[in-house]
Design a protein around this nucleic acid. Structure first.
Lengths: 251, 251
DNA sequence: CAGTAACGCGTACGTCATACGCAATAATAC
DNA sequence: GTATTATTGCGTATGACGTACGCGTTACTG
């Protein structure tokens, strides 16, 4: 009863990221800029992890007082959202007509963005894409599906499917990295520790498949980290291919 | 140089969840139990969201002092991990020989668990599965692939692929729900607000595909929320089917 | 030149996780 | 039966953190 009017309007900082704010004609010139604040946040996150990103820490990075940041960002959540947007950067613009090659290229580019900024996967998703780069990636993904017989309902589902997969793999990679950095082990030792841990917690009777997988040495080495990603991606693309070709042949 | 010995041993509370702790013979009888603490945490999260889960709030739920919880859990992170584990519950135990039906059933069960406890997707993933239910789900998933020609390396990849997808869809569903609860709108109005927002931020020239999708009314209604899930799941299963049948026919 | 809007930022407050220590308790060792 | 000791509940205190508020300053507008 208090505030029945649902808003759904965007924060000023997001509008600024879209370049929709005309700079005010009055008052002192800003000493900072939204971009510089976001870049400082990224610098801190890259160097010290997302946990180190506090308003105070970001301000220190810029040599300003903590509260000055709030002239550019209304809340920390907004800063994080814009940091992720900047971490994505612009999507690949290669002109690719083959949807499969295009989507694969797109997915790899997204994975590389997350590898460059592993903290990206730790920022909780706050809603559907509204920042410039997020929407640009979405647009590019949809464009790659242009030649396919997929419906307007299906195309976004495909993008969700692929980008969600990228995010998952990136998350697992980040988990592994954080685990062995925290315990300062080598990646191999971390995997090995996990193997021994699982074997000690479970019995072969109750967890036969898990034991079989662990004993097969599946988790022994982080062989080529790309192989894991490739496997799932190819399955997804195969599944899409099946649908697309079935539509194409039954015209 | 300080602490070169990497540990990789588990927290006491996790061991307790596995039933590996012999209760101490000395001292007063515990007034609480790990299970009760975890259940209280779940009750708070279900009723008021994950954001409301503070140690103080959980303690209040139990009628105890905040610090008493630390006799059962060494840190809040552990509590959250165990809350998620309990939210999963045991995996479906249906005996299904057809891998595709089995995996589908498994995926749907996981989605339902997340729908029951939507905050589950908001708990950041801290590492590979080590809690009882998490590992039980993993085991079940692997068991469903027993009859397939997939290798010991591929099977976990498949599980990661499917459960990651479930998690993504559950996250998107949670996003939507939180968005319209926050703005107290109906789901339709929330979707509509997003549509108008996107159209106002982007131009049809720069974002033609996005405009086409929005104008097609794709995001107008949350029709049957299950349809979205089904679409992606079937694509994944199709992709797996392609691999499995190719292996089967080429013996 | 007065008015005004936007700036940088110091202060203060509320929330939260959690380290520490103490008194009470209950089993064990003598 | 008494002393010992491990373990419990929990009060207190600390330090981090996000951010509301307001003040003095700046630079453009009327």
């Amino acid at each position: 009863m208090t505030d029945s009017g649902g808003d759904m309007s965007i924060p000023a900082s997001i509008a600024a990221a879209w370049g929709l704010t005309d700079r005010p004609s009055k008052g002192p010139k800003p000493g900072l800029s939204l971009q510089r604040v976001v870049q400082a946040g990224i610098a801190v996150a890259d160097a010290e992890g997302l946990g180190a990103v506090s308003m105070a820490r970001v301000a220190k990075e810029l040599g300003t007082a903590t509260m000055s940041l709030y002239r550019y960002v209304a809340a920390k959540d907004e800063l994080l959202l814009l940091m992720v947007d900047a971490a994505y950067g612009p999507p690949p613009t290669d002109v690719i007509t083959d949807w499969r090659k295009g989507l694969s290229n797109w997915a790899w580019a997204e994975l590389k963005a997350f590898r460059r900024h592993p903290w990206g996967v730790r920022v909780p998703i706050s809603g559907p894409p509204i920042t410039p780069n997020e929407l640009a990636w979405f647009e590019r993904g949809l464009a790659l599906l242009r030649g396919t017989p997929l419906t307007a309902t299906e195309k976004p589902s495909v993008i969700l499917l692929v980008s969600g997969y990228v995010r998952n793999v990136a998350t697992v990679e980040a988990d592994l990295r954080e685990a062995f950095e925290a315990a300062n082990l080598s990646p191999d030792d971390a995997l090995n520790g996990y193997n021994r841990l699982v074997l000690s917690l479970t019995t072969p009777e109750a967890f036969p498949e898990v034991h079989a997988v662990v004993n097969a040495g599946t988790f022994d080495a982080a062989d080529n980290p790309d192989d894991e990603f490739t496997f799932g991606l190819e399955r997804i693309l195969d599944g899409l291919d099946a649908l697309i070709t079935s539509r194409t042949t039954h015209g």
